[in-house]
Amino acid sequence: MEKKDENISAMSTVAVGEAGRTGDWRDLKPVINHSKCIPTVKNKAACYLCWLYCPEGVIKTGIPVEIDMDYCKGCGICAEECPAKAISMVPEGDNDE
C-alpha cells in the first residue's frame, strides 16, 4: 500500500536541498585558484573569508578550500570578498580550472 503521512496539520521535517539542487540556478560558477588561496599557500588554517561570507554555507574550511557545487547558487560574494583574488567567476559550461 502507498505510504501516507500521518500529520493532521502541516509540519515539515529537515533536509538539505529543500528547493532542489540550487546549484542549477547558477550562470557563473566560482573557481578557486589554489595557488593564490591563502590556506593552501601557507598550508595552515587561515583567511576563510569566503566561508565567512558565503550566504549558503557551502564552502568548506579545509586545505584546500572546497565548494559544494550542488548547492552553490553562484552569487559571487566569495569572489568579491577574497582578499587574495583567488576566486574567479566563470560561465557555467567552461571547464578551464
Binding site: 502507498e2 505510504k3 501516507k4 503521512d5 500529520n7 502541516a10 515539515s12 521535517t13 533536509a15
Partner: peptide
Amino acid sequence: KNSAGVLCD
C-alpha cells in the same frame, strides 16, 4: 515527497 520519500499531503 518528504526526505524519506513519502508522498505527503
